[in-house]
Design a protein around this nucleic acid. Structure first.
Lengths: 356, 356
DNA sequence: GCGCGCTACTAGAGCGCTCTAGGGCAGTTA
DNA sequence: TAACTGCCCTAGAGCGCTCTAGTAGCGCGC
């Protein structure tokens, strides 16, 4: 240990470790009441500029910081939003990143709780509620509808990127169908007709994307070319799908539309390592535009969801529920749009597009 | 909104929204004192089994959950550990996942704070302290040593995967040198002599790995083959390094040792997309064994850090500081070991290993 | 001189919990 | 019978803040 350890708490005895300064200490030092200090720290009107100055000075000197727990307790409103997300999902991470500034704007503080393998979403949600979140933002949760309804019965809840039936929640999501449709339109426009969709099972958004793919193929007269390969919203899911396609004896499709970016990256990885050139032989398009998609070496064509928009709306929805501006049940959808990057191009032997 | 919305709070008026049940409600319902209910909920001795039973029943009926803020405030100890991590770093995510169970074991609750582009580490740390963390676990923070010392002066701090000078913190980290050394030994054993290191600048662990690479090369008599390419602990850093190597007119090395997994993956991606076969032409080895390294389609040879071990020790270190078992300043290092997977093998034309 | 409104401030009651002192009330033991 | 155990339980004082109600002091017009 370094000799000049400035902590007083280091001295043997467990109990008398130097107390953190409180508002009362600051008040005493300045010679005013606690209430005044409180005002100053909440930047409420009612204190003279000089007093403000002196309060801040004293606080800095003492190393005082307001205690959230006490503040939460005293205040009716805690102004804390609880966020559930999956740590391993880069799209969720993007969302969380976007929620921070959105929350700050409306004066909310954030508490994160990660759903990880050893700690399921139920536990994570309990933790959030226990930490006095006023409302919950659930990023693409995978628990059943009924459980969501139960949570929502206890606490205002906003679902991001997931739908749910008959639960008093707000839903903020991207409008997946036009996005997915746009992908097919784009690929067909380039001359592709052999377009496979690697689906994401029942993951949030996956069914809509799958349906939109089917509809779009049909409306281009490519009903008989529809082909859905099972996958998942993970790199592994994409990799498995790619391996499955490589193992078949029929030729590879000229284009693959994956249900999300991670899946697309799995495909990309397996294809390129098997010697398949992207996009020369196979075009790959993902979905989400999570930050990894944009990285130089991946450069994935994908559908951009308006993440800051989603984040902003989600926080706003929570705020509105909390202020009882309206009852829960709002349903907001944001447009998403195709982002063409390096993994897509015309099919290898640009065959004439089949007429219909 | 669904018609059967069970929330009472939904009715117009902002204020009178159905109060969350408190401990007093439970006590009243059972006909005992609040203190007794408190005992029961903390599973302290002093209540008869029947009473316990009745308390739990009443609580379940009312939907009562203990309020953390109040509990924190009332209790001297908050039993909350604050964790700072970088949301985008998969290794950090692995660490966080491992810390959850480790913390639970010692009875600690966790509060996460993510460092994201719009919210630097200072802010994240303030948030953690504000939320009454008793101690901080900082995962590979990038703020300067002096700032860490300042934080540590205010609150017991454990650094994970990063070193620091002259600050009263505990440090829990992997012993990077033998791990990095092992990589070079392994590659040389396979017959490689043209081994490049893509470094991670001043990122946590990077200098040690770089130094170990140099030392190991030297001890194998390959001092003149030492070559360090600048990179970063990100996919982009690796990709850039790969592009730089491809652009040179000298031949590619037969093996690349990257400073972390993300960097290795960037290399892998750019190489394979440029038609370079891995591991036939170039072997790639990463560092960290973050979960992405193990994914089937990546299958990266790497150095495994004992993440659960690190997590456990970090929580334990925090606990010891808090209980004043000892002063801060402990320094724990865990062995890490090479994990051979699919991205490494013998060099293309297995040249006889140079003697020395 | 009075009331008026304004600003700058204070007193004191909570918020929902925990924790320290006890208070009864058995069942021993002296 | 008194004193001493335990065991189960309660009263009530905080924890550090916020918030409502109110006060003191000032300048203002009539």
């Amino acid at each position: 240990m370094s000799p000049q350890d400035p902590r007083k708490r280091a001295d043997r005895t467990p109990a008398p470790r130097s107390r953190k300064p409180t508002m009362a200490d600051v008040a005493a030092k300045v010679g005013v009441s606690r209430a005044l200090v409180s005002l100053v720290f909440r930047s409420q009107p009612g204190a003279s500029p000089e007093t403000r100055e002196r309060v801040f000075e004293a606080a800095a000197e003492l190393g005082y910081r307001p205690d959230m727990a006490a503040r939460l307790l005293a205040r009716g409103r805690s102004k804390v939003l609880g966020i559930l997300f999956t740590a391993r999902n880069p799209y969720h991470v993007d969302l969380v990143e976007a929620i921070y500034p959105a929350a700050e704007e409306l004066g909310y503080d954030l508490v994160l709780s990660a759903a990880v393998p050893t700690r399921d979403e139920h536990k994570a949600i309990e933790a959030l509620i226990g930490h006095r979140s006023e409302a919950l933002l659930l990023c693409g949760p995978t628990i059943p509808d009924a459980d969501i309804a139960e949570v929502a019965a206890r606490i205002p809840t906003v679902l991001v990127g997931r739908h749910v039936k008959d639960a008093p929640v707000d839903v903020v999501t991207s409008y997946d169908r036009p996005g997915a449709r746009g992908v097919v339109d784009y690929l067909v426009g380039l001359g592709h007709s052999d377009i496979v969709h690697v689906e994401g099972g029942s993951r949030p958004g996956a069914p809509e994307r799958r349906r939109a793919y089917r509809d779009a193929m049909r409306s281009h007269g490519l009903a008989d070319r529809i082909r859905v390969v099972s996958g998942d919203h993970t790199e592994e899911g994409g990799g498995d799908a790619a391996r499955a396609m490589l193992a078949e004896d029929r030729p590879l499709p000229t284009a693959v539309f994956a249900s999300n970016d991670q899946c697309a990256i799995g495909l990309l990885e397996v294809f390129t390592r098997a010697g398949v050139r992207v996009p020369e032989q196979v075009s790959i398009v993902g979905y989400d535009d999570s930050h990894i998609a944009g990285l130089g070496h991946i450069d994935l064509s994908t559908v951009r969801q308006d993440v800051p928009g989603l984040a902003h709306l989600a926080v706003q929805a929570a705020d509105e529920q909390l202020r009882s501006v309206r009852a829960a049940g709002a349903y907001v959808r944001l447009e998403s749009k195709l982002l063409v990057r390096g993994t897509s191009g015309p099919p290898p032997a640009a065959a004439p597009r089949p007429e219909h």
